[in-house]
Simulated scan of single mutants.
Amino acid sequence: MKNDPHNDNIHHHHHHHSHLKTGTVNDKNLILTMLLNLLITAAEIAGGLLAGSLSLVSDALHNLSDAAAVAISLMALRFSRRGATLEKTFGFQRLEILAALFNSAVLIAISFLLFKEAVIRLIHPQDINSLIMMSVGIIGLLANTAGALLLRRDADKSLNVRSSYLHLFSDALSSVAVVAGGIAIYFWRITWVDPLLTILIGLYVIKESYEIVVDTVQILMEGTPKGIKLEEIYTSIKSLPGIRDLHHVHVWQLGERQINFEGHIDLEQDISISESEKLRRQVEALLRDKFGIEHIMLQMEYEGCPGRELLCCII
């Protein structure tokens, strides 16, 4: 008989922590980019009111969303460096999700208000100062391009920064549309282009914001992360030698990147703790290499749970 103690239940909790390496992300570039977007927002709102251009105001909304996105990126990077506390054992990653949800919901609401104003202007066209519209649009184009260039180098070091970089790049394209609209109004006096651009930009903002809302709600509801197939995980783990079953599984996402996994592994034989440790490491390697899950908590047991459903409701 082996010297290692045997138990009906072998409970082994293991946490494998992995944090996204932000490398040498330059906080100053993020701050400068945020200030540039706030400057564009102020300029486009002022220019839109002076020129009577609703599309400039709509584009200002888009730039304000970019400033918020960069601010969220900066906040997330700084808070993630603080780590966990006794009061917040998971750290502050959820702040990023909550801020993104709030920001996106507000943008959707404002976009619908701009739609209403755009329809009124389509029915009752208003004079627009195309020179101001073009001038402010060019300023927005230059500033957005500068901001995108500032974040380009750090975009490969952080998913959060990459998201902000793509936002700025798309904003530069919308500024091109505003400038083109100003040219059309200046040469051909087709003022309906302005509310039409407002609707198109608003639709784009709603599309982007809605996708963020869906993703953030999924994370806050602790739903199964995108790309994770529980049936495939079950089949893969159960196929390992020495493992009878996998049950009581929970997979959720803490923040934008960190995926958490917990589950009970039912062993085929009543083996020692040291032997079960080898199996646990195999399961962890499988989850990490095949499914990209880094934060793992496993309970190793032998005929420990009366119910062996894959999913177990928390009551």
Rank of each mutant, 00 (worst) to 15 (best):
M1Q: 10
K2P: 08
H6P: 02
D8E: 10
N9I: 08
I10D: 09
H16S: 12
H19Q: 02
T22W: 04
G23Y: 06
G23D: 07
K28T: 13
M34K: 06
M34L: 13
L36Q: 06
I40L: 09
A42N: 03
A42V: 15
E44K: 04
G47F: 00
A51Q: 00
V57M: 15
S58Q: 07
D59R: 01
N63Q: 02
S65I: 06
D66G: 05
A68Q: 06
A68G: 09
S73R: 03
L74S: 06
L74R: 07
A76N: 13
R82V: 14
T89E: 12
G91E: 06
R94A: 04
I97H: 02
K116I: 12
V119A: 14
I120N: 13
I123N: 10
L142Y: 04
L142D: 01
G147M: 03
A148P: 02
A148I: 04
L151S: 08
R153Y: 12
S158D: 08
S163A: 15
S164L: 00
L173C: 09
S175F: 02
V179T: 07
G182L: 01
I183N: 07
Y186G: 01
W188G: 01
L197M: 10
L197P: 01
T198F: 01
L200S: 05
I201Y: 01
I206M: 15
I206W: 14
K207S: 14
E211S: 15
T216P: 00
Q218E: 11
L220R: 08
K226F: 03
I228V: 15
L230Q: 04
E231R: 10
I233H: 06
Y234Q: 12
K238G: 00
I243S: 04
H247K: 08
H247N: 11
H248N: 09
H248C: 03
W252A: 02
Q258F: 07
F261N: 04
E262Y: 00
E262K: 06
H264Q: 05
E268N: 11
D270F: 03
I273S: 14
K278F: 06
K278D: 12
R281T: 07
Q282M: 04
A285T: 12
R288S: 14
F291E: 08
E303I: 00
G307C: 07
E309K: 12
